[in-house]
């Protein structure tokens, strides 16, 4: 299967327990340049709510959420 988007950085947070996908994302985003496209892979249901909410707060752009069979990929662009 091919990806709908090209990403520069992939964060695989599938089955992440602690501290979870959003914390994984925040930890990595800090060190990325503006314009970088990130793909966050997550199995946590809440991610489709809390990731977009944080992106909005922190001023990064949500590009797309792609549903797969057993996980989802959230694409975002760092500002």
């Amino acid at each position: 299967m091919t990806d709908a988007h090209n990403s520069d950085v992939t964060i695989d947070s599938r089955d992440a327990s602690c501290p979870g996908p959003l914390m994984d994302l925040i930890g990595k985003v800090k060190n990325l340049d503006s314009g970088t496209v990130v793909k966050l892979q997550t199995t946590e249901r809440n991610s489709t709510m809390d990731v977009p909410e944080w992106l909005e707060e922190a001023g990064h752009d949500l590009v797309e959420i792609e549903e797969r069979d057993d996980y989802r990929s959230i694409y975002l662009e760092v500002n």
Binding site: P19, G20, W54
Partner: peptide
């Protein structure tokens, strides 16, 4: 805390 709740684990 950085995210929308008090800890990464719900």
């Amino acid at each position: 805390y950085p995210i929308n709740r008090a800890h990464g684990l719900e």
